[in-house]
């Protein structure tokens, strides 16, 4: 069925309304999980895999924080991506490479744990010309899903 101009405009208007209601317009997305770091990390790994990504590495960032007023050195950076995807991206968008693989920083705050990552829409602003819109949208959706799974 071919749709005429009227509904198409209205439809795209409606779509625009839906798309333009992001939960996070900030450069970063940050959420709080009400559980200790270890439990959060476990759930995060699961959530990342459930969205179809591989965790490539979990880094300890702050080997030396003890003794600086910090009571624990509970800080990790979790890296993840899709096998194969990275190579193609590096070829096409070398500007994105320092921001890849995707990553989420995880750190303890009292009894809860904070998770922070770069909002994929920010990458869009890094690539003024031909943006991989579909990819950025997928990342956005997946990352929001992953973080909401963990903070639930």
């Amino acid at each position: 069925m071919k749709t005429g101009p009227l509904p198409r405009h209205l439809l795209s208007f409606l779509l625009l309304m839906l798309i333009s209601l992001p939960l996070h317009a900030d450069h970063l997305i940050m959420v709080r999980a009400h559980k200790p770091l270890a439990a959060t990390l476990g759930q995060l790994r699961q959530a990342i895999q459930k969205q179809g990504y591989t965790v490539s590495r979990v880094d300890m960032v702050n080997i030396g924080l003890l003794g600086m007023g910090y009571t624990s050195n509970k800080y990790r950076a979790v890296f993840f991506g899709k096998a194969g995807e990275l190579d193609e991206l590096a070829q096409k968008y070398p500007r994105l490479v320092p921001y890849l693989p995707l990553r989420i920083a995880v750190f303890a705050e009292g009894d809860s744990t904070l998770l922070v990552t770069i909002n994929p829409s920010t990458y869009g602003s890094f690539l003024p010309a031909e943006k991989p819109a579909e990819l950025l949208n997928r990342w956005q959706k997946d990352i929001e899903e992953i973080l909401s799974h963990v903070s639930r």
């Binding site: 702050n62 600086m68 070398p94 990553r103 920083a105 750190f107 922070v116």
Partner: peptide
């Protein structure tokens, strides 16, 4: 340097330690 940056902003862990990528393109 890592500790200084984390003390200013704990979210900086996203970019620590520093990294440089070298890539041979097609």
């Amino acid at each position: 340097q890592i500790n200084t940056l984390l003390a200013i902003d704990p979210r900086m862990g996203l970019f620590l330690p520093n990294r440089i990528t070298i890539m041979e393109q097609s």
